[in-house]
Structures are given as C-alpha cells and as structure tokens.
Design a binder for these strands. Structure first.
Length: 752
DNA sequence: CTATGGACTTAGGAGAGGGTGG
DNA sequence: CCACCCTCTCCTAAGTCCATAG
C-alpha cells in the first residue's frame, strides 16, 4: 500500500472539525475515563452521561506535556485530525476477497472446546521439556511480583534437577560431537534452552561489549553541487546543508509534498541555519534541491556500478565491523547484537498521518549515549575526545546501549539478536503462557459471555472488548497522546465512529462492521456477525455519544489487563493474539495437509495455514510494486510449460506407437525416457501453478510477522517432522537461528 | 488513583544481496 | 555474463505492558 493508498480522503473528518472549542475536545476521551470511575458503583445500565459535564477537569494535566518542548503546538492541530485512510479500497476489496477464500476455513471463536487436558501422551523427551517450560512460566510469573523468595528458588532448582538426567545424557552427546568437529565448527551451538534460568530477576551476570557504531560524519557536498534559492545559487553552511540533503534525498517521495511534512521540516531546518541563512531562506517553495537530488542519485548509481573488488572490500569492511561491534559477551557466550549501529540523522517519517513527519531526527553523539555493561568487564571506549553520557551496570535489563530520541522523547536501545539466549527464553516463555491460556480459555469465554449480562456497565464493556480481542484478535489499544502520533486505535480505544451496526446484513443477523486504522495505520476492515447480546450491548454503549467518543468509555487496557491477570497468572490482552494465532495454525495444518500431496503442495498448505493466521491478525503488506508483472511472467512460464507438456505427450504417444510396431529394446527405452520427461514436466508445471496460487493469494498479506512473532515454532517444526519436510522449506536461516530452541526440542507429536 | 517513563515486542517497508534464466 | 527478480536483512517506528512518581 504505497503511495497510491496513502491519503485517500478523509472519511470521517470534518464533521466536527470546527465545532469544538479547543480544549474541550481534547479532553473528551479522558473525561470519559473519569466518568467510568465515578460511575463504577452505580451500575447504571444505560445511564451514560454526556461526557461534557466534566470537560474542564483535566485542564491542568493537559498542560504538562514536554518531551521535546513541543508541548502545545499540536494541541490545535490535532483537532483537525482525521482519518486519512492509508490502506484503501483496493485493499479493502482484496482483503474481503481473501476472507471469502479463507475464512470459511476458520471457525473462530471457541475452537478449542474440548481439548484434552493437554500433553497426556508425551514422549519422555517432551515430558521433560514441558516440565522445564512450566518452570519457566513460573519464573515469569514471579518476576514481576516481588516474590522470588529463597523458597521458590529452591523449589525450582529441585524441579530442575528432576529432569537433569535426560539433559545430561543429551549434553554429553553434544559435547562429544562437538569435540569431533571441533576444528570445523569451533563454535558449537550453545543450547541455552537446556540450562537453568535466572530466578532472581537478573538478566545476566556478565556483560561486555564494544559500544555502538556511530553514523558516519557528514561529508559536505562537492562545490559543483549547488543549491538554489529563488533561482539564485546559494552556498549553505555545512549545518544547514546537511539538513537540506536529507530533504533532497527524499525529493521523489510523495511525502515531501505534504504540508505537515514540509512545515515540520522547514521549521527544524531553520533551526540549523545561521543568521544569514535564516534571514534569507523564508520560503521552502523557493528552495531548489534538484542538483543535490541528482547528485545522490548518481552516487547510488555509481555504487551499483562498482567493480567486484570494490564491492568485496566494502563487504569485508562490514564484516570486520560486525565482528568487532556486532557481538557481545554475555555470561560466557558470544552473542549477536541486533542493532549495533546508531540510527543516522535524517527526517522523521512516521507512518500514516503522522503529525511529526518531516521533523529533524538529530545526530546521536557519544554524550547522548548510556552504556550498560558489567562492572568487571572491559568498558567500551567512547571515540577519542568524547565521553559517554553515563556508564551503568544494571543487570536487571537486557540492553547494552540506550539514548533518548528527539522526536517523541522516547528511549531507544541496542539489544541482542533474536537468536540470543535472552530473547529466546522470553519468546519461549511467551508461547508457554499462551499454552496455559489454552487450558483455561473455555472458562474465560464462559465468563465473558456471562458478563455481557452484568448489571455493571464497566463489566459489560470489559466483556465485549475481551470478546473482540479473543474473536477478532484485536490489539489491546492503549490510549495515546493526541497530536503526538497518528490517530490509530486498538480494541479499548475504539471510538463510536469505528463501528457500524447492522441488525441485518446480507442475510446475517447482528452484523458489526469495523473500520479503523490500527497499528502502523494499517486499516482494519471487517464485517462480523456477533451474538445478539453483544449487539445489544454495543447499541447501548453507543447511545448518546458522538462519533469521536470512546466506545468503551469505562475501560482501558490497564483495567482490562488487571482483570485478565485475575483470570490467569500472566494473562494480558496480547496473549490472546498469540494463542489464537498458534491454535489456528495448528488446526489449519491439521485440516489442510493431506498425506498424499507432494512437497510443493504441502508447502502450499503450510502457507495457507500461515495465511489464515496473517488474515486473522490483519498483517497486511503493500502489494509488491512489480506484482502484476511478476504474475504475468509466471503465467507466461506456465503457458510455456503447458506447451512443453503437450509436446512431450505427443512425443510419448508416437514413441509408444513406434515401440508397438518395432517391439525392440531401443524403442521401449525411448518410451520410458519420454514417460519420464512427461512426468518431470508435469511436476514442474504443477510446481509453477502452485507457486502462482500461493503468490496470488499472498498479494497483500504478510506472512512474516505472524511467523516470527505469533506462531509457536514448535508447531511448525512438528509439522515438518511429521511430514518429512525439511525445516529449511519453512524457515530461512535467520528464522532457524531464532527458533533453534524449537527445532531442537519439538518432535512430531508436539501439541500446542 | 493518573501520568509518565522505561523496557521490551511487534510491525511494514526499503534496499541489499544473491540466485536464476535468457 | 548480465539483467531481473525475489528473498532476506536491516531499519526503526509503533505498539504492549509494567513500574514508579506525583
């Protein structure tokens, strides 16, 4: 959904754009929240009051913003906030089509009805991992709370000892193997998942690294690359020039035409100018960056045209940098760092309709950097002549480096790669929590069905919201600071304008139409029939509200999560996404895979199962720019293959006829050869066709996100093992590194 | 409580890199 | 061998959720 979909027209906007008097509007949502509290005890069913009665309350709070000093400046702006749909009709259509194709396969909500109490039949091996897994979970449960007492520790140790035996044997085997190969693979893969974990809340005992790699310094443009203002050449100071180049590099992008972008950019650019420049450059429209832009284009061409040697040199240099800065030592192991390079300066581009787009993202210097490492490690050196902001030794966190970013005032971190122990353990634990949800999800569902009838409004709202989160895999929906970010919502922050109710629609009763922008301003559009009770509740929640009022005015994520916590230890809203995604994959795989299919067909089935999840989670992507063309190419290939096939068939026929007449060895052999050829071509054709189907169905669906973040990798690994499919067909190298734990421990009867 | 800060996960897009077919 | 195309990797924004300050 690139350029063409951005914008699209403000659907919801202006209806109330002007009607409110500044502050009022801003406070509306918050006011609702207050209402909630006040009414808590009232259990009014329908006594929703007009929020306006308390508009003034929040005024003072409103004033304290800060972060980058931009306090109130957006206060007015955000009022114009509108929903500029980003993902558009095209998308909508396709999305629905896909639903039509795939949704029948999914029967969402209570899919889990009668799960066996889980893992009865497990091989000893599984038993073992399960045990450890539970421990892990306990860990996580304890951690946030203050409990981790001595007792717990001991208990855990004890438990762990129980499975030490199988572990040991395994380890030994590994070790010997390792020795054998020691020369070839000096770095035997470390199986952190076979080791104990910290139970005291610390994340490591030893941490040593070399600090971040800074962005290369600015190199002024050669003097023949000129900037013009109002048609006249003007030499810029290096500071101003650098910022100008940021803009020049984006010239082809649509957003340099956007008002907000231009306004933010120009404002920040002026801050970097010297007095003279400031006085002279007063209108961005009169600035001509084209020479700069051409220059950068030429540079990138030149880079592409480099000789092999030059490219190799660069590659080697990168490798050197990676080896030096891309790893750290954490607790006796050399682990890969995810992002060891500091983000270079540039112009901020938020996603969707972001109020801060175009602002200058400033250069990060050593004095902005906080280093985290262990006391007894060799501390990273700041570049000559500079100092770190701070060096600390906090082993309760996982980051190595942090700094504060200037656009939102938030903190950025350098952390480890997903293949690292510290990330892997957490990931594993996440899936274990989801598996625990599996065991009690029926109970929870029963309860929220009950709660739809509650006397208390807040409970009804909570129950309906939870139903959406469970059934539709919506995100929690934290509230956001208005005017600081794009206007997007999740479940708890849905507004009245985001849903439409149809007592009857297309032959279905009680249909709810969702249409809102979610994370990353990706549009969520869906029409779902719901239970009558949900429908009636929604009508109730919407009574007497404006379109931009909160749908769930007595609910927020923290209330919801508090409730979830009571239902199950460690349960939060996002666990439902993980759970529903993983369970859907497992079901779909069961349903779609058939034993007699060949490998490509099995993989298509896998991808379809994956796709069902991606659709559930609304993971969209812009259709690749070359999509149509590449589809055509593929079709051409298919046609060619078809021709080839009929040729081959014809040849086979004649060979057969020939053999019948001649009845000699030679012609018999010829028949065999032709037969083989036909078969081979048939297979190739089939493969191409499958590929075409897969690609077509995948046009605007992104599989990666769910694969990486929501699907318990053990499900996929088990599936591969069950059907004799190499994991490499499912996971690429990075993914295999990230999921090494699962690849190692899941066997074919793993059940999520 | 509520607001804010902090840490960590989840997200889509850009562009590099590498394989493939002509 | 080159152009093209696809996949993967990197990049960093945008969420979630918890802790803590006021």
């Amino acid at each position: 959904m690139s350029g063409d979909q951005i914008d699209g027209g403000s659907r919801f906007n202006d209806s109330h754009k002007h009607k409110d008097k500044y502050k009022e509007k801003e406070h509306k949502h918050k006011d609702h929240k207050k209402d909630k509290e006040r009414e808590k005890s009232k259990h009014g069913n329908s006594n929703h009051k007009d929020p306006s009665d308390k508009k003034h309350r929040d005024n003072e709070k409103e004033k304290m913003k800060h972060k980058d000093g931009s306090t109130d400046k957006y206060k007015d702006k955000h009022k114009e906030k509108k929903v500029n749909y980003h993902a558009h009709n095209s998308l909508k259509k396709a999305h629905m089509v896909v639903h039509a194709i795939l949704l029948p396969l999914l029967n969402f909500p209570p899919q889990v009805k009668s799960e066996p109490e889980d893992n009865f039949y497990h091989s000893p091996k599984n038993e073992k991992s399960l045990k450890r897994e539970r421990d892990d979970d306990n860990d996580s449960e304890f951690k946030p709370k203050k409990i981790k007492t001595e007792n717990d520790k001991k208990a855990k140790k004890r438990k762990q000892e129980e499975d030490i035996k199988p572990k040991k044997t395994k380890n030994k085997r590994e070790v010997t193997d390792g020795k054998k190969k020691a020369k070839k693979e000096p770095e035997e893969k470390w199986k952190w998942w076979e080791e104990e974990r910290y139970t005291d809340g610390s994340k490591w005992k030893f941490l040593e690294h070399k600090g971040p790699v800074f962005a290369p310094p600015y190199e002024p443009l050669p003097s023949n690359v000129k900037f013009y203002y109002d048609g006249k050449h003007m030499k810029l100071s290096p500071e101003a020039e650098e910022v100008a180049t940021f803009f020049a590099k984006m010239l082809d992008h649509e957003y340099t035409t956007k008002d907000i972008f231009r306004k933010n950019f120009f404002k920040d650019w002026r801050k970097e100018m010297n007095a003279e420049e400031k006085a002279k450059l007063t209108d961005l429209k009169k600035c001509n960056f084209t020479e700069m832009s051409e220059y950068f284009k030429a540079q990138s061409e030149a880079r592409k045209a480099m000789t092999k040697d030059e490219k190799l040199k660069i590659k080697e240099e990168n490798e050197r940098l990676l080896q030096e800065y891309g790893f750290c030592i954490m607790d006796n192991h050399r682990e890969r760092i995810a992002n060891f390079r500091i983000e270079p300066p540039g112009l901020f581009r938020g996603r969707g309709d972001h109020p801060k787009m175009g602002m200058l993202k400033r250069r990060i210097r050593p004095k902005d950097i906080i280093i985290n490492c262990s006391k007894d490690s060799k501390h990273p050196e700041p570049p000559p002549g500079t100092k770190w902001k701070e060096v600390r030794h906090d082993n309760k966190v996982t980051w190595l480096v942090s700094w504060t970013e200037n656009i939102q005032g938030s903190i950025k971190y350098i952390m480890l790669n997903p293949s690292s122990r510290i990330k892997g353990e957490k990931d594993w634990q996440k899936y274990e929590t989801a598996r625990r949800l599996k065991k009690c999800v029926d109970r929870i569902r029963t309860q929220y069905h009950e709660d739809w009838k509650s006397k208390e409004m807040r409970i009804r709202q909570r129950a309906v919201a939870l139903y959406f989160i469970d059934k539709l895999a919506l995100r929690a929906g934290n509230e956001k600071e208005e005017g600081e970010t794009a206007d997007t919502v999740g479940c708890c922050s849905l507004r009245v304008e985001h849903i439409k109710l149809y007592p009857e629609n297309d032959g279905q009763e009680y249909v709810v139409e969702f249409d809102f922008l979610g994370k990353d301003s990706i549009r969520y559009y869906n029409k779902v029939p719901v239970e009558k009770r949900v429908f009636k509740n929604l009508q109730l929640f919407m009574e007497n509200k404006e379109p931009d009022d909160d749908l769930f005015d007595r609910l927020n994520t923290s209330v919801l999560n508090k409730h979830l916590q009571e239902l199950m230890d460690g349960l939060t809203a996002k666990v439902f996404r993980t759970y529903n995604a993983s369970i859907t994959l497992q079901q779909q795989l069961k349903q779609l895979t058939s034993a007699d299919e060949n490998l490509p067909a099995k993989i298509l089935s896998y991808n379809r199962a994956n796709r069902a999840v991606a659709i559930l989670c609304n993971h969209q992507r812009a259709p690749p720019k070359t999509f149509e063309k590449s589809m055509q190419n593929l079709q051409t290939k298919i046609d060619a293959k078809r021709d080839q096939l009929s040729d081959a068939k014809r040849e086979l026929k004649s060979a057969k006829a020939d053999a019948k007449v001649r009845r000699d060895e030679k012609s018999k052999k010829a028949v065999e050869t032709k037969k083989k050829a036909v078969q081979r071509i048939e297979e190739q054709l089939m493969k191409l066709e499958v590929q075409a189907t897969d690609r077509e169905e995948n046009k605007q669906i992104a599989l990666g996100t769910s694969k990486l973040n929501y699907l318990d990798p053990r499900i996929s690994v088990a599936w591969c093992k069950k059907w004799g499919i190499p994991v490499e067909k499912i996971y690429n190298k990075t993914q295999r590194e990230k999921f090494a734990w699962a690849i190692d421990m899941a066997d074919e009867d793993f059940e999520f």
